[in-house]
């Protein structure tokens, strides 16, 4: 992602992106570091770390497109999970109504 990208200014449905806890969580017990999710994601959410035990991390969590969980479908060992969509929708609605 280029430096012109400013996560502070990003919003989703009028809610600051940073207020929405939507991004993948890696289950390191299941993850086999095949990197398919990273290969898929065009938004640089993941990062590969050479020489570490956790060779893959969620690095740019706010780059993750809210409600998108397509990367999880590329995950053969089913090691990726996302928050509950209903909860997130509720949260977005709450924020919007409080900040009208």
């Amino acid at each position: 992602m280029s430096e012109s990208y400013d996560p502070e200014k990003e919003t989703f449905m009028g809610v600051p992106r940073k207020k929405i806890p939507w991004w993948p969580t890696i289950d390191y017990v299941k993850c086999n570091f095949c990197m398919e999710c990273d290969k898929f994601c065009p938004h640089d959410v993941y990062a590969r770390i050479e020489g570490e035990e956790k060779k893959l991390i969620v690095k740019n969590q706010y780059n993750c497109v809210v409600f998108c969980r397509t990367c999880a479908k590329t995950c053969a060992p089913d090691a990726l999970s996302f928050p509950n969509k209903r909860e997130i929708t509720k949260l977005i609605k709450k924020f919007r109504s409080e900040n009208k």
């Binding site: 898929f40 065009p42 409600f67 998108c68 397509t70 479908k73 590329t74 969509k85």
Partner: peptide, 20 residues
């Protein structure tokens, strides 16, 4: 389905995406 659920998907040579 609920609002923002994924309903099916579509695939191009470039990528696979869900319809939200």
């Amino acid at each position: 389905i609920e609002q923002f659920d994924d309903v099916g998907s579509f695939e191009s040579v470039k990528t696979v995406l869900d319809l939200i």
